[in-house]
Amino acid sequence: MAYSAEKLSEEKVFKDPVHRYVHVRDLAIWDLIGTKEFQRLRRIKQLGTTFLTFHGAEHSRFNHSLGVYEIVRRIIDDVFAGRPEWNDDDRLLTLCAALLHDLGHGPFSHSFEKVFDFDHEEFTRQIILGNTEVNNVLLRVSPDFPKKVAEVIAKTSEKKLVVSMISSQIDADRMDYLQRDAYFTGVSYGQFDMERILRVMRPREDQVVIKKSGMHAVEDYIMSRYQMYWQVYFHPVSRSAEVILTKILHRAKQLFEENYTFKYEPIHFTSIFNEKVTLEDYLKLDES
């Protein structure tokens, strides 16, 4: 049996506070979850400095990535299966792209990127295409499979329908982080009727569309997103903490450029100040 079609002898599940369970039956997905590059996401906070405002917001990119995968799996297996507009040959490609879409995020996410001019999407591409455990797993599917996954995540793939499931205005990424961030921050703004939205999704040649009967569920989703941005993501305390962190990172960068010696620096600390950071050095960076 081809690796792309291999299943686990018994379904594996992750207990999840948002989706109740994350179901894994595909061997390739299970192998990807076990790679060191994916496991690294356990040490990358989903909301950066927001935990200083909402003390429960300690969840990670690992949690979120599994959640996005689970939503996409449900769309494919429960809603799209058997519909003529959906090509089931794209199933594993879509699941892998959903699982790996945030693979290249660094510590404190966007604050860190702005100071050091990093692009997490570029590092995601490097991890998928480079000499990594993730790449080795994807190569077992086919020689060109890593490239196909990277193109979906970069939104350059010709498979627009697959791209829209992971990156669009109503996609699995947004649906997971709104609910997950609401749960861990303890607010109610991120709640919307995802079950209804999933039921009224339909595949088309170049995008996912929503039936007219699902209009009110979509309106609820849009308002949920609006409220989460103003009440959580743009919270003044969270934003001020981000500004302080940014200034600390700028100061550290300045001291390095002035050849200041860091007395207690970790082995890999100064590598982030170099003009060209290797993938190996990048993967050592976390928030611990």
Rank of each mutant, 00 (worst) to 15 (best):
S65P: 07
G130P: 05
Y226I: 00
W230M: 05
Y282I: 06
E257K: 10
E287L: 14
E158T: 01
G190R: 06
E11Y: 01
E11K: 14
E257G: 05
P17R: 13
Y3F: 09
S111D: 08
V209M: 13
D173F: 14
H120R: 08
T132F: 07
I44K: 06
Q169A: 10
F123R: 07
S167P: 00
N87K: 13
E205Y: 08
L249D: 05
G190L: 02
L100M: 11
Q207T: 05
L99V: 15
A252W: 06
E133M: 06
Y69R: 11
R61K: 13
R174G: 01
K147W: 09
E257H: 06
E37K: 13
M215I: 09
A81N: 07
D16H: 15
D286E: 09
I75D: 02
L255I: 02
A57W: 07
Q39R: 15
V79C: 08
E6A: 12
E121F: 13
V115R: 12
Q46K: 15
D16Y: 08
Q179P: 01
V232H: 14
K114H: 09
F273V: 00
K155H: 14
K155E: 15
L129A: 08
R74P: 03
H250P: 01
A154Q: 15
T132C: 10
V137D: 02
G104K: 06
D144F: 07
T156M: 05
T246S: 04
H64W: 12
S4Y: 05
N63D: 10
L283W: 03
E151I: 03
N136K: 14
K7A: 04
D117L: 09
A172V: 03
K284V: 00
V22H: 05
K15A: 10
H19E: 12
E158W: 04
L8F: 07
N136L: 02
E133P: 06
L129Y: 09
N135H: 12
V13Q: 11
E70C: 14
T49M: 15
L95A: 11
V79T: 09
D26W: 10
E113W: 02
F234V: 02
L138T: 04
E113G: 03
H235F: 03
A182V: 00
F14W: 01
A172Q: 12
I71Y: 02
Q254Y: 12
I29Q: 04
E133N: 03
E10K: 15
Y282A: 14
I170Q: 08
N274A: 00
V72C: 10
D117P: 04
T185V: 10
I170C: 09
S65E: 01
D77K: 12
E219D: 11
Q227H: 13
E151L: 07
P143M: 14
H59D: 11
I75Q: 11
S65L: 08
E275A: 01
E275M: 02
K211E: 08
